[in-house]
Each structure stands twice: as structure tokens, then as C-alpha cells.
Amino acid sequence: MIVVDNCSPDGSFEIIKKEFKNNCNVDVIQTNSNDGYSSGNNFGIKFAISKYDSEIVGIINPDVILSDKSNIDELAKILMSNEDYGIVGGRAVNYYGNDSLQLSAWDIPTNAGILINLSNILRNRQCLTHIQKVADNLVQVDCVAGCYFLAKTEAMKKVNFFDEGTFYIMKKIF
């Protein structure tokens, strides 16, 4: 496991490093600056590729709770079962127990969809329209949620990793 501290200003890095100092199965690393979600993930992914020559990388946010650790193994099996798969995500369930697929996936945003989502009245009302059932408990979608997913490192390399402007731009605007 690799824990990436995205240059937290609150001393988190030292606390996390101390917590895992005797665990050889955990690498705790820190970015030089907080340049957003994508940049922090790219930092960890590139570290995993460099140090471990990883075939698969996974992202799991610190607020995600897995109901069963075997979920990761199941996602890895699905990911590796088809050469066309580049990324797979788990189905998210929110704090209230809601597990709508829209918590876990969405369509590639259109300009109109972005405007709708930014409006206070219609916020998060976009419909998931690009969905195709592949098998029981497996659907193909445009995008998976960034809180919990696995990806083939070759697929990440092919698309030049995550666009590091994804959330950093929003941070600068707001």
C-alpha cells in the first residue's frame, strides 16, 4: 500500500509516517505541493510503477470503507479478464446507505451538462445515459468515480495519466 500525502499543511504526513513506520507493506510519501487530486494520484501511481513495476494500480480515498476486502481482488479479476478494460470502479454507497449507480459512474460531461451541474437548482441531476450491461454486477460506463477504482498501468501510461488540471483549475477559480 502506498499512502500519498498531498502536501497537507496540518502535519498529517508526519502522523501517518509515524503510524506506519514499522510496517514494511506501507510506503508513506508526500508531494512537494498540493496541486490537486489528479496530481496527487499521478504522484502515487508513478511511484508504484517505479518502485514495484505494478501492473495494476488502485486509488482508494481515506474516507472509503470497504465492506469486504475481497472487493479489491474481485475488481482486479474483472480488470484483468478483458484486454479492452483499462479501469474498473466499485459501486459506491453513501453515508445514508444509498447506492445509486450515479454515485459510482457518470457520462463524459458535455458543456450543457457542466452548466446544469453548476446550477444550484439542478445540481447533480444529470442522468447516466451511456450505460451498457456487460454481465451480472458489471456495466460499462463513460467514467467511474475517483474515490475507489483500479486501473491497468499500461492504460494510465497510454492516456498520459490523469489530467492534472482536473480539480486544480476549480481550486483556482473558486
Rank of each mutant, 00 (worst) to 15 (best):
Y95A: 10
S8G: 13
N117Q: 15
L115F: 05
Y95G: 04
K18I: 00
I114Y: 08
A92V: 14
D163H: 07
N117Y: 15
Y148C: 09
K51W: 11
I59D: 01
N34A: 07
Q126T: 02
F13V: 02
V141Y: 09
L75K: 10
R123A: 02
I29Y: 12
V28H: 05
R125M: 07
G165K: 15
L138E: 08
V28P: 13
L122A: 12
I16G: 00
D99W: 08
N137S: 11
K152E: 04
R125P: 00
S81F: 02
G36K: 08
C24W: 07
G58M: 09
G146E: 04
Y37D: 10
V3N: 02
C143H: 08
M1W: 00
I131R: 09
S12H: 10
S8V: 05
V64P: 00
N98R: 01
G90Q: 03
E14Y: 09
A112C: 01
V134N: 07
H130E: 10
F13A: 08
K46L: 07
K152N: 03
I45T: 13
Y85T: 04
I108W: 08
V88P: 01
N94L: 09
N32T: 05
E14H: 11
L115V: 07
L115A: 09
G113F: 03
N71R: 10
A48D: 07
S12V: 03
I78H: 05
V26F: 02
D99L: 00
G113L: 04
I169R: 10
N71S: 08
S104N: 09
N160L: 10
L138Q: 04
Q126Y: 05
G113T: 07
N42Y: 07
K172Y: 00
M80S: 09
L118A: 14
A151S: 14
I131A: 00
K46N: 03
I16Y: 06
D35T: 12
K17C: 03
H130T: 13
L75N: 10
F174D: 00
A105P: 00
T129S: 11
S50R: 13
I169L: 07
